[in-house]
Design a protein around this nucleic acid. Sequence first.
RNA 1: UGCCGGAUAGUGUAAUGGUUAACAUAUCACACUUUGACUGUGAUGUUCUCAGUUCGAGUCUGAGUCCGGUGACCA
Length: 562
Amino acid sequence: MAEEIKKEEKSLNFLEEIIEEDLKSGKYKSIVTRFPPEPNGYLHMGHATSICLNFGLTKKYSGYTNLRFDDTNPSTEETEYVDSIKEDIKWLGFQWKNEHYASDYFDELYEYAVTLIKKGLAYVDDLNADVIAAMKGSPTEPGTNSPFRDRSIDENLSLFERMKNGEFPDGTHTLRAKIDMAHTNMLMRDPLLYRIKHAHHHRTGDKWCIYPMYDFAHGQSDSIEQVTHSICTLEFVPHRELYDWLIEKLEIFPSRQYEFARRNLSYTVMSKRKLLQLVTEKHVDGWDDPRMPTITGMRRRGYTPESIRDFCDRVGIAKRDNVTDVGLLEFCVREHLNKIALRRMVVFDPVKVVLTNYNELPGQTEMLTSEDNPEDEKSSHRDIPFSKELYIEREDFMENPPKKFFRLAPGQMVRLKSAYIIKCDDVIKDETGAITELHCTYIPESVSGNDVSDIKVKGTLHWVSVKHAITAELRMYDRLFKTEDPSKEEGDFKDYIDPDSLQTIKTVYAEPALKKAKFDERYQFLRKGYFTLDKDTSESRMVFNRTVTLKDSWKPQPSKGG
RNA sequence: UGCCGGAUAGUGUAAUGGUUAACAUAUCACACUUUGACUGUGAUGUUCUCAGUUCGAGUCUGAGUCCGGUGACCA
C-alpha cells in the first residue's frame, strides 16, 4: 500500500488560513461568524458572496453563523426587508443558528455607553452636525476639541440620561468617544456613538429616541454574540481601529474584524443606491426583475442556488479590487442547468415544413418519444406528436447556404430531433418573395431509435407539429448594461443600460409536453437556451424567462456572391 | 494633501525563498455528437517599474508608478 496519500490539497484563502491558525493555536475551539444585513434593501450578488463566505466557513470548520439585522437607523429600515432577506438566505441554501437584531442589544449598548462615560472615555457634545464636521479637521490638519469635551463625568451621565429620556430634540446632542482629535485616522477623532432620533423603530417602537451609530453597535453586537471572526468588506478597514479600541476599553469579548474585497460583476451595478434608482425610475420591472443582480431577480430569472454557490466557490475571495466576468456566473448556471433541465422543443420564429410524402391516417397521430434529459442515463421520456405539417426555425433554413451550413437548404438533408431525416425539395414563396413553406420529403426508415436508412447528416433541428403546437410568450433577457463597468464610464451609469436587454417574443410554438410546465422546473429549449416559468404566467398564457442562452460556437461563414 | 489597502494570463484566483509560475473561465483549433449544446484533446496567453539582499525572488528590503478606500448625527 502506497504510504503517500495523494490528497488534492486545495489552497486556502486568507481567511481560512487565519481560522486554521486560530484553531491550531487553540485560540478558539470553534468559530462563530455572522451575516449582518441592514434591513433597508434587497440582497444582491455581493451579499451572496458574503453569505457563502460566512456560512461556508462555519460549515467547513466547526462553528455556526448568526443572522443579525443591523437595525440601528430607524428612519431607513423596514420589516418588509427582513422577510425578503431571510427568504433569500434560505433559498441560497443556508440556515443561520440564531436570528438577532442589533436593536435587541439597545439596553446593553446603553450600559456600554454609560461605562465609557464613567471611564472618562465618552462625553455629551452640544455641537450640531455642521460644527462637528467643521471641527473634525481634514486628513492633513488636526481637528479641534469640542468646548464640551471636558465636562465632568456626572454632568455627562446626567446629560446622556436626559438624551435617553427624550428631553432634547433631534440633533442637539450627541455622545462622542473621547479619543484624539488629531488622530491620523479621521474615524478616531472623537467619533459619534449615539445620536438623538425621535423616530419609530420597526422593532423597538417608541421605546428609544437615541440610537447607537454603526461603530458603537456592530462590534459590540459581535462581541455579545461571541463572534470570533467578523468578516466585512474593505471599506471598513479604517473602522477596525475603532472597533478594537471600543472592545478594549469596554473589556468585552474580543471579536476580530477581517476585511475582503467586495465582489463586482461585469455588465451590472451592485450598489444598493444604484439598484434602488433602477427600480424607482422604472428602468426595470422591480427588485425581482430578472436582469437585476438581486437574489430575488436571479431566482426569477431561473438561476439555481447551486450555481450561485458554485460561482462563489470558484471565484474565491481576496483583498484586491475586482470585476468578475459575469460570463463565469453564466458558465456555472449552464453547467448546473445542463444536468437538471428538461429538454423541450420550441420554435421561436416558425417557417412551415410540409412533408409531401407523409400520409396521415385520419384520427391517428404518430407519437414519437424523446428523453427529458440525455445527460441523465435514467432519464424519463415524453411523447411528441409528429405530423405532415411542422414548424422549424426560420433561421434553420437558407436558400443559398454558405459552406458548412449543416441545416436545411434546397436539396440538403437534416435530421429532425427524435424523428426523421428530411430532405428539402421545394421552396414556396409569396408574391413578395418571402418564404411561406418548405416542401420536403421524409425518409420513413430513418426514424429515431430504428434508423436503417444508413444516411448520415450533419445537422439536427428542433421542430414542432403545427396542429399540436401550444403557444407561449418568451422573455429573452440579456445583460442589463452595454459596458463592462457602467459605474466607471463617463456620465450617468444609466446611460449605459442596454435597451435590448429584454426582448419579448409574444408567441412561440412549443411541443405539447411543455403545457405541464411547473414553476420549480428548469427547461432547456433545444438549441436555444435555458428557460423557466415566470410568475406572470396565467391560465390563458404561459410566460417563460430565458435564464441563459446555450453556448453557441457556430458562426456563419461569409458567403460569396450570394 | 494625510492615513490605510492593493497590484500574478482577457477575467477571477493559486503558488507561504527552491524545477519550466498553476487552476478555472474566456479565446482559437481539432475530435465526438440525433442539441453547431454537452464531453474529450490541444493551443494561445501571466508576475507594475527600477534598484538591492540571496547560490536562488512572484514571494524579502527600499524607492517609484498606477489603482482603490477613507474626511455622513448612513451602514
